[in-house]
Structure formats: structure tokens, C-alpha cells
């Protein structure tokens, strides 16, 4: 007896050809599971991950710029270090968001009488006292971050700098837009001396 193709399990008497046809190809010939093409999604994910990893900054945001300020740009800048942030506007001076000076009618202010910023001085002294109590034995770096609009006249900055220097904040970091290509050297973390490219 030769080999024969297995037949149907149903008895021929109850054999239902149309049922068999439907059972063999369910849902009228369409497959139940469709494969989703993931290639495009993985491509997109790879591109996003690569982009985000190249722009990743381990130091994070040191400061958030005021939207009213348009910073100047620079191509040869240093990495920002955490220090008190002084913001100079045409209308006033802020330190860490706190208004400490009024710049209105600055041209009429006389350097001998109303040029100083006493509230700024007070805040700078308290920052210095905090630093010296927290880092006893470490020389005071005198570092401060200064941000101002790129179209501002120097006289506004000069007024803030005058008070900063009086209080011993002589290392001033002017905030600019651009990538930091210099890194302050490790042995003098507070200094503004040259670092490695």
C-alpha cells in the first residue's frame, strides 16, 4: 500500500468543505498577526541618541539666562564655574535674582557720592563669609559671574565692577554664548588662568 495524504478527521458525512476552507485560512485569508516594521523607528532613535550624547554636558546648567538679556558670543571661552551671579541691566543690578541697585540716570551719578552699590556690597560680603566658613583654609577665589546684554554700554558694567573689586571679587567671568574650549587648570580651581584646550 502506497503512502497516502492524510485525510480529514471529520467523517465524510459531516465534512463541511466551506468550514474547512475557512478554518485553514482564517478571517478570509488575512493573517491574524502583522509584523510592525521597526527599522525606521530604531534609525530615528539612534540619530536622537547620538545627537543628545554629543551635546551632553556633565556639568549641567550653571545659570539660566534672563530672557530679556541677549548675551554676546565668543569662540574662545572658558568653562563656567559656580559663583555668585551678578546681572546688570540698564535699569538695575541683580545678584542671584535679588535687586541690589538702581541704574536709572546713571550718567548723572557721581562716582564719589552715589556710585557705590551698598546692597550689592552687603550680599557680596555675606557670600564671602559663607565661603570662608564653609571652606576654611581655602583662599578666597574672588570669582563672580557677570551677565549683561550685548548692547549695554560699559558704564553700567563699570559701576558693578567697581563694587566687585572693592569687595575683593577680582576674577570676573563674563557670560557669553558659545562652547567652552578652555578649562580652568586643576591646581588653581578658582583662578582664571589658562587651561588646556
Amino acid at each position: 500500500m502506497g503512502i497516502t495524504k492524510p485525510g480529514f478527521h471529520l467523517h465524510s458525512r459531516w465534512d463541511l468543505p466551506s468550514f474547512r476552507k475557512r478554518h485553514g485560512k482564517p478571517l478570509g485569508g488575512r493573517k491574524v498577526s502583522e509584523e510592525l516594521n521597526l527599522t525606521a523607528m530604531i534609525d530615528m532613535f539612534s540619530v536622537i541618541v547620538l545627537f543628545l550624547m554629543t551635546t551632553f554636558s556633565a556639568t549641567g546648567d550653571i545659570l539660566v539666562t534672563n530672557p530679556a538679556i541677549k548675551l554676546p558670543t565668543a569662540a574662545n571661552a572658558f568653562l563656567l564655574q559656580r559663583s555668585p551671579i551678578v546681572t546688570v541691566f540698564e535699569k538695575g543690578v541683580l545678584i542671584e535674582g535679588l535687586q541690589v541697585g538702581d541704574n536709572s540716570e546713571i550718567q548723572s551719578k557721581v562716582e564719589d557720592s552715589d556710585w557705590e552699590l551698598p546692597l550689592l556690597k552687603e550680599q557680596l560680603r555675606s557670600y564671602r563669609a559663607f565661603f570662608e566658613s564653609a571652606d576654611a583654609g581655602v583662599p578666597f577665589p574672588g570669582r563672580v559671574i557677570l551677565q549683561a546684554d550685548k548692547k549695554l554700554n560699559f558704564v553700567y558694567l563699570k559701576r558693578a565692577m567697581y563694587t566687585l573689586v572693592e569687595e575683593g571679587y577680582t576674577n570676573i567671568d563674563l557670560v557669553v554664548q558659545g562652547e567652552a574650549i578652555f578649562r580652568p587648570s586643576a591646581e588653581t580651581p578658582a583662578g582664571s588662568d589658562a587651561g588646556a584646550r
Binding site: L52, L71, A77, F78, V176, Q177, G178
Partner: peptide, 17 residues
């Protein structure tokens, strides 16, 4: 964790520093 705005510093050495 992305930093969207790249900021850096131009150091100023004031006269008596």
C-alpha cells in the same frame, strides 16, 4: 538632562588682581 543653551565665560582680570 540636555543643556540647550551653551554658555561659557570670558575671564576678566581686573587691574588690582
Amino acid at each position: 538632562t540636555a543643556v540647550w543653551e551653551q554658555l561659557a565665560a570670558v575671564p576678566v582680570n581686573l587691574g588690582n588682581s
